[in-house]
Amino acid sequence: MTPRVFSPLVLFLVIAFLIGPFFIIVAASLSGGETLAFPPQGFSLKWVAKVFTVESFRESFAVSMFLAIGGTAMALVLGIPASYALSRYKLPFGETVRTIVSLPIIVPGIIVGLALLRYIVVPFGFNITLALFLAHTALVLPYAVRVVSASLNNLRSDIEEAAVLLGSSRAGAFFRVVMPNIRSGILAAFILGFVTSFNQVPVSLFLSGPGVRTLPIDMLSYMEITYDPSVAALSALLAFMSIGIVFLAERFLGFSRYV
């Protein structure tokens, strides 16, 4: 086969492999049958409707939202000053700190989850919500630092000195001229963090406990008991939510510049 034929074929296969499952899930969720199956049997919206009636989905959705929004906000509260310090000052262990902050991306979630559970949550008796909150903060922190750092590196540091010479304090200069100029970077970091946290499985799997679990974990355990298409319907809804968020982010922020 010549590259002329071969390359588009490979491209097609890759796209089919990446996007195919999504179409399968959407199709399965619209099935009229009683079990999760593909091809779907008949057409019905009843499983989509059922998603909203399952009590545990509602509860775990609230937990996931709380973790995604709260954890990401916390990661930004820690990450913005950290990025600022890393990009503006020549710190003695700057590069080391940058690497350590990025570790949660590199280390497999299973290991992070197990380690947190075994060495922090259990020995110190953390409650489940707090443990999940801290874990999600830590998981999002690398993204926050990377995206905000990218924004800061594109911003000249002399505008802060200019603000100071016009009468602003150092801290005032940060809030008046640095923050407004990295706003879209912060928003991009927030969205990336939100999606990362919301879709997180391995760490949440270890830390979830009685009464408190995130939506993906709840879906897993639901499927173990009830094998109906409502899980597919929920997956499809979540996928559309993620697509919607990323689409809006790209449309208004040029999201792809940051990630």
Partner: peptide, 19 residues
């Protein structure tokens, strides 16, 4: 401190506030 000196500085890069 620099913000209380009544000294103005025009930077080489101008350092205007982009936003």
């Amino acid at each position: 401190s620099a913000n209380k000196r009544s000294v103005g500085l025009v930077f080489q890069s101008y350092a205007l506030f982009p936003h």
